[in-house]
Design a protein around this nucleic acid. Structure first.
Lengths: 187, 187
DNA sequence: CTTGCGTATATGTAATTGCATATATGCGAA
DNA sequence: TTCGCATATATGCAATTACATATACGCAAG
């Protein structure tokens, strides 16, 4: 259950509410983890049960009351344990590769169309990431970022590099498929 | 529920049993999809309910009886629909990136150790894939593979290229982290 | 004065998953 | 003859997920 760990990481940097966490996932962590808003609240509930976080109730007047979550000592321990744990081999679930793998069952042009649309979508994502990177570079002296920020930026940088390669490889596949026969040669 | 579609793809190429499908996933499809044996049987049950497949009961004497699954016309339709469907944006769940993202909360050496172990594991996987590719190249005249096989090989090739880049990027991160300060500079 | 938006937390529910376990056959090795 | 292995199918169960929906406050625009 890694969602709890990611939340732990975010809360350790800055105590916040479920609502804030959701925004953080949409913005900051979007490059490696997507989740539903409802999962965040359920995870926070479990984490509180585990004693990883505790709640500060804040009464507000201009907005609904809110609950700010703080990491406990036990939570910090768990976070550090997770951070040093060998990376769990992610369960591979790349359905799109299946769509190429079985491409022999439709026309080349169908596979190519699917891959081109995918490539274009990835390109849009890439441009977004690059824009974020550009705006960070403009706003900060990168060499003077706090240590924490250097790790954040490293992940963003990795994401951009990986995405570029990924797009390149998709294009490579498109080019290759263009040379595939439409039907088997039965000579 | 993409598992059913992958099963559909495999069965369309060759009718087989749940047991065979499990082996196919372990061997052939390992590069883009991992699943539990139990999920395969449950998926087959659902697919039968949907009318995507039907069952041929085979009585055996040297081994337990088995059920060979065949794709129906409805299943073929569904398969072709899936193959031409826009690629669903995979839910990102790269927990390991979180381990780097929050690396500021442990020592550089801890993050590096985690990444080095990950890199080595990826290298072992890569070598396996390359060995498979080599043995296929040795056994077949690649230019004379049936169309279906060309798609299979393309995916394997893509997997190898992506894996190589991935390892390269992991190494890049390691090199970068080696230059990170151990603590923030409070001058 | 009512409609929509941003803030804020939460539940309902069906599907799906991971992981463990049960069951059964026949073969070959110790 | 007993043990393990490959073959073969299946269930139990808790955890987790996706997706939809409910609730509620205060502000600003029309």
């Amino acid at each position: 259950m890694s969602l709890s760990h990611l939340i732990l990481g975010l809360l350790e940097e800055q105590p916040m509410t479920g609502y804030d966490l959701n925004k953080a996932f949409e913005q900051t962590a979007q490059h490696f983890w997507t989740t539903e808003q409802s999962q965040i609240y359920r995870a926070l509930y479990r984490m509180e049960e585990n004693g990883w976080v505790n709640v500060e109730n804040v009464i507000q007047h201009e907005n609904p009351n809110k609950k700010i979550y703080h990491v406990t000592e036990a939570g910090r321990d768990e976070l550090r344990r997770w951070l040093s744990r060998p990376i769990a081999t992610t369960t591979l679930r790349e359905g799109w590769m299946g769509q190429v793998y079985f491409g022999g069952q439709v026309k080349n042009s169908a596979v190519i169309a699917v891959l081109e649309a995918y490539r274009d979508e990835l390109l849009r994502d890439l441009e977004e990431s690059e824009a974020i990177m550009t705006s960070i570079s403009a706003a900060h002296d990168l060499s003077k970022l706090p240590r924490r920020g250097q790790f954040h930026l490293l992940v963003l940088d990795f994401g951009i590099r990986a995405q570029r390669d990924h797009i390149r490889h998709i294009q490579y596949m498109i080019d290759r498929i263009q040379q595939f026969p439409e039907e088997d040669d039965h000579t």
